[in-house]
């Protein structure tokens, strides 16, 4: 048993923020624990005061607030999967929760933990990117919002200050004809994404793309919105040949970020394949 840990469970957000104001430097925030506990077992957890935020009401709930969709940071992947609100307004996010790890992990893992862990493979991130989500965090100096693409400064490196808590994510609801999330893993469950992708798209009556948002997961150290590809396709009909071209552009963009590592032998074609597959339902064949 890990001897040198402490445990604290605040009953309000304010109490949690107070705690962090003094002990933030030695504190790890724990909610679902599905990442923290793995690090704890491996002896890799450096900040060993555990602050349990899983029961803070301020971090819970999925709701529409005006034009925006708000998902509490302590909302679990299982809750995301079951949410009718998300099925309507953020189907890609809802879908990413469906095959996330395992039922047991979905019951505990939270969206805040998945984002805050800053794993390049976090499955909730690409859907949040296409919803142009902002992460809300609260600390002793008040609340601030950060675009989801700016949360991570590198793999497993987070922008959040030691005295801050992620409280929620604010999403633009879908407003599109088409939205999807797909992943490639080495197996059907309990698989870390080898690659994932989220897409959102609108077409006019002729099939021309009027809006497209595309995000890539597990390929780049930090979340990646594929703007070059989006711009390339905007106003065009997504015919197979064009999608193939766009896929090549996508791969180039990815390699520009990551460089040519050994895994690129697979990822370069696979990212194009996944892209063509995710957009195949909207492809124009005339």
């Amino acid at each position: 048993m890990n001897r040198d840990c402490t445990y604290h469970r605040p009953s309000t957000l304010a109490e949690a923020v107070d705690y962090l104001a003094t002990k933030g430097g030695e504190t790890t925030i724990i909610a679902g624990g599905t990442d923290v506990m793995v690090d704890l077992r491996a002896g890799k957890l450096e900040r060993r005061n555990l602050l349990d935020v899983s029961r803070l009401d301020e971090l819970r709930g999925i709701r529409l607030e005006g034009e925006k969709l708000v998902v509490g940071a302590a909302v679990t992947l299982a809750e995301i999967h079951r949410s009718p609100l998300l099925a309507n307004h953020a189907p890609a996010l809802q879908k990413c929760a469906r095959n996330f790890a395992s039922a047991q992990i979905r019951n505990k893992a939270t969206i805040g933990g998945n984002v805050g862990h800053c794993s390049p493979c976090g499955d909730t991130i690409p859907p949040l990117v296409i919803h142009q989500a902002e992460m809300v965090c609260t600390g002793s100096s008040g609340q601030r919002r950060l675009p989801i693409t700016e949360v991570a400064t590198g793999a497993y490196r987070c922008q959040i200050a030691r005295d801050e808590i992620i409280t929620a994510f604010v999403l633009e609801p879908v407003g599109a004809d088409f939205a999807d999330f797909q992943k490639i893993g080495r197996r059907q469950a309990l698989a870390i994404s080898r690659m994932s992708m989220a897409a959102m798209l609108n077409q006019d009556q002729e099939g021309r793309i009027t809006m497209l948002r595309l995000a890539l997961g597990a390929c780049t150290p930090t979340p990646c919105r594929l703007r070059l590809v989006e711009e390339f396709l905007l106003g065009k009909k997504p015919q197979p040949a064009l999608l193939m071209q766009a896929g090549e552009l996508l791969a180039e963009q990815m390699i520009a970020i990551t460089g040519r590592r050994s895994s690129i032998i697979y990822k370069e074609p696979a990212v194009q394949g996944l892209f063509r597959r995710i957009l195949s339902p909207v492809a124009c064949h005339d």
Binding site: R186, P240, A241, I265, Y266, P269
Partner: peptide
Amino acid sequence: ASLERVLAASIDAGHYRRKER
């Protein structure tokens, strides 16, 4: 027959670039 090996075989056989209809 991993993702990597199977995709390489698919590319090699010409299925990857096949026009989808």
